[in-house]
Write a protein that binds this DNA or RNA. Structure first.
Length: 516
DNA sequence: CCTCGAGTTGCGAAC
DNA sequence: TGTTCGCAACTCGAG
């Protein structure tokens, strides 16, 4: 019989620092000569993922593997469904213990429950720890009377009651001799991108290298700018600067290359005793937004859908494949929108306010296409696409939940001008418009033909005409939003009647969420 | 039950 | 160059 094995299962949390489940695996090896085997499963479920995001993941895994090797271990990468994979591993490896980080997404919850059952059947002890979020989300949920806080301010007041997030744990310094990895087979190596069957021609420039090493280096760069940290205010950062105006730590938080608790406490130590901005707009506030949406996503049913989602306004979006296609392929004819969508596709990251602009444009602002379609495109293309945040922000921008002032519509022409008067951002991502004079760069269709010719770009031929008339369509859409908002007071028979207690949404949500 | 204040980040005209 | 207001009146949560 081989030596008993303790598996640490990496899913998110692709790091050694602040990884309490990994530490628990190491702890349990003390004196008993367990062998530690860190595992990552390439789950076929993880498919709605573009090449840039795959590259980020593979780089993160390689970094993790290198770091583990320095400790005398390694990463075991296995392709397959988690349940089938573990069935085999439990048999083959003499597994006695399994540790992993708690994941609150619906798919993950279901997956982990199944694995726990399997482990129990195979007499494998399971240890789980919270480390992907600042808080144990259940504590927040309970502290709020077993409901989810639906406004940010309410959320902040609840977290204040719960207390400060736990401290970040240091990375393990060494693995005891008896626990190092004996199995060196290359069949478990981190695969190359080429092996994943992706279209590598679709890969864009590699601006953000995946992995914990890069995450920590990036964190340090920004934490050194203490003055900048203290003054950070999200709405004042630029959606269309040529270099990111924010930290771009989001992909590292998404994959767990960076611990939110480490980030949180680093920020706190800088802010202490200094004058600084506050949530919601401060950097700390951004971490709290992440937490806010994670909490909502963990407890609200059908959080990524309109139907069956108790907080989501029911809006009669229309199926418009040609409009969705134009938006996705950066061919709306609005340079600001198309430049953002090009940056998204090629680089995998766009500024938060740029997300606002294109999300509003796709949904309530201009195209009247369901936010669920936009959500899918972001899920594929954003390096930081995070299930709860993605759904929550799409509902926010489409005025389906959290945000309700639907008459505030971003202009696809005016909004970008505030921070990029000359359209340098547009010229960077849409080189066909490079020679347009500043006057027309946000509205090239208004340029006289002579100007279009001189710029070597005819509108309707070399760059599309605008697919909608913003001034007209946005007003029409506002009226449609108004109707959809009024509709909730109507019964299923269509007759208007007074809101009843059963129908008023807070009661409905409370009932729904209190069930379990 | 009702009322009221607050809510991360709009636009564009008017002054 | 900056502030205010109209748009038309939203939802949530506290009292």
């Amino acid at each position: 019989m081989t030596k008993p094995v303790v598996i640490h299962w990496f899913r998110k949390g692709l790091r050694l620092h602040d990884n309490p489940a990994l530490l628990a695996a190491l702890q349990s090896t003390k004196g008993s000569h367990y062998e530690l085997r860190p595992v990552f499963i390439l789950d076929p479920w993880f498919t709605s993922t573009g090449p840039n995001r795959w590259r980020f993941l593979i780089q993160s895994l390689k970094d993790l593997d290198s770091s583990l090797k320095l400790l005398g271990s390694r990463l075991f990468v296995i392709k397959g469904k988690p349940a089938e994979t573990f069935k085999e591993l439990f048999k083959e490896w003499n597994v006695k213990k399994l540790t992993f980080e708690i994941d609150t997404e619906p798919y993950s919850k279901e997956r982990d429950l199944l694995i726990k059952t399997l482990a129990e059947e195979s007499s494998v002890e399971v240890i789980t720890k919270v480390s992907h979020t600042l808080y144990d989300l259940e504590k927040i949920y309970n502290a709020n009377g077993k409901t989810t806080p639906l406004t940010y301010q309410k959320f902040l007041s609840v977290t204040a009651k719960v207390g400060s997030p736990d401290d970040s744990h240091p990375a393990p310094e060494k693995i005891p001799d008896g626990c190092k990895t004996s199995l060196l087979s290359s069949k478990y190596d981190v695969p190359e991108l080429e092996d994943l069957g992706l279209d590598l021609k679709e890969l864009g420039s590699n601006l953000f290298l995946g992995g914990e090493t890069e995450a920590l280096a990036r964190l340090e760069i920004y934490m050194k700018k203490q003055d900048w940290v203290c003054k950070f205010s999200k709405p004042d950062t630029s959606p269309n600067s040529l270099e990111p105006s924010t930290t771009v730590l989001s992909p590292y938080l998404r994959f767990g290359c960076l611990s939110p608790r480490l980030f949180y406490h680093r920020l706190q130590s800088i802010l202490r005793g200094r004058k600084h901005t506050d949530p919601p707009t401060s950097l700390l506030g951004q971490l709290m937004w992440r937490e806010f949406y994670y909490t909502a996503g963990a407890y609200i049913p059908n959080f990524d859908k309109m139907e069956g989602n108790p907080i989501c306004k029911q809006i009669p979006w229309e199926s418009k494949p040609e409009h969705l296609k134009a938006w996705t392929e950066a061919k709306t004819g609005f340079p600001f929108i198309d430049a953002i969508m090009t940056q998204l596709k090629t680089e995998g990251w766009i500024h938060h306010l740029a997300r606002h602009a294109v999300a509003c444009f796709l949904t309530r602002g201009d195209l009247w296409v369901s936010w669920e379609h936009g959500q899918k495109v972001f899920e594929e293309l954003l390096l930081d696409a995070d299930w709860s945040l993605n759904a929550g922000n799409w509902m926010w921008l489409s005025a389906s939940a959290f945000f309700h002032q639907y008459f505030r519509v971003y202009s696809p022409v005016a909004f970008g001008k505030k921070t990029d008067k000359h359209g340098d951002y547009i010229k960077k991502y849409l080189p066909m418009l490079k020679k347009y004079p500043t006057e027309y760069i946000y509205e090239p269709w208004k340029a006289p033909l002579s100007v279009q010719k001189a710029a070597n770009c005819i509108i309707g031929k070399d760059y599309p005409k605008p697919i909608v008339q913003h001034e007209v369509i946005s007003k029409e859409n506002m009226a449609k939003m108004k109707m959809a908002y009024q509709k909730k007071e109507e019964g299923s028979d269509g007759n208007k009647r007074k809101k009843t207690k059963q129908e008023s949404s807070p009661t409905k949500i409370t009932k729904f969420m209190k069930k379990k």
